[in-house]
Amino acid sequence: MANTIAIKRRIGSVKNTRQITKAMELVAASRMRKAQEAAQRSRAYSQIARELLTSLSNITEVSEHSLFKKRTIKARLLVVITSDRGMAGAYNSNALRAYLAELKADKSAGVKSYTIAIGQKAAQLVSRLPQTEVVGVYKHLPEDLQVHDLQPLIREAAKMFTDETVDKVDVIYTHFYSSINQQPNVLHLLPAGFAETEISAQLNLAEFEPSVEHVLGSAAKKLIDCQLWQAMLESVASEQSMRMMAMKSATDNATDLVDDLTLAFNNIRQASITQELAEITGGAEALND
């Protein structure tokens, strides 16, 4: 009977775990919905902001602006976005693997790397890395993140770029393609409008009011803010979605385990009953003889 007691305990503990993973799954699902909506809502804005930045960057007057100026890349700032907590499947390890690949690329190209880490998981990793200089760590960002929560980070990044400490700022985040597909991605933040695209003829002729500097000074900053903000939203949606999937498979696994254990338990119980019966009938037979 000792064996059945052990199995019974095991079943109990697996059931407890299942309850927890189930609850985490539900929490992640509701947070994912919210995060997903937020990410999708602002996608139109950031898409157009990106287009605008790109076409602006092709205008000669603009390309000399401090936030748009393309320089030879001698140093690069990497902003890596991860979560504070684990249990989100491959979310953090995917993002960090992409980050390490970028670091490696920098090293082989002889580019100096600086890092800003967002999230506990990235913070833990970068503190152990000798090949990069950590300029900032942002942990425990509030649950209902607002655009202004990222201000200090953006300021730091923009300052490093304008005083030419770094020649490029890239963000490593996880893009939310769908609730079953999320991929780490590299976003070029600065110089603004990094991608080469056709310049729209319209913009080329456009007047800037009050002046190019003024428009760029206020608007470009906003558009850049928005890029980072979008990356952050995408990451949060990915995180919650991956956590939900991880917790769902954990719950499924626990259910399978409980089934297997219950079967084993019943087997042993039945075996012991059969054995007992055999012993009783055996004993009775012996008395009859």
Partner: peptide, 19 residues
Amino acid sequence: PTGDGEIAVYQHHMPLVTT
């Protein structure tokens, strides 16, 4: 409302980027 004051925009306005 722009940085230089309020403007009204109609069809065929000249190309303009403003705050």
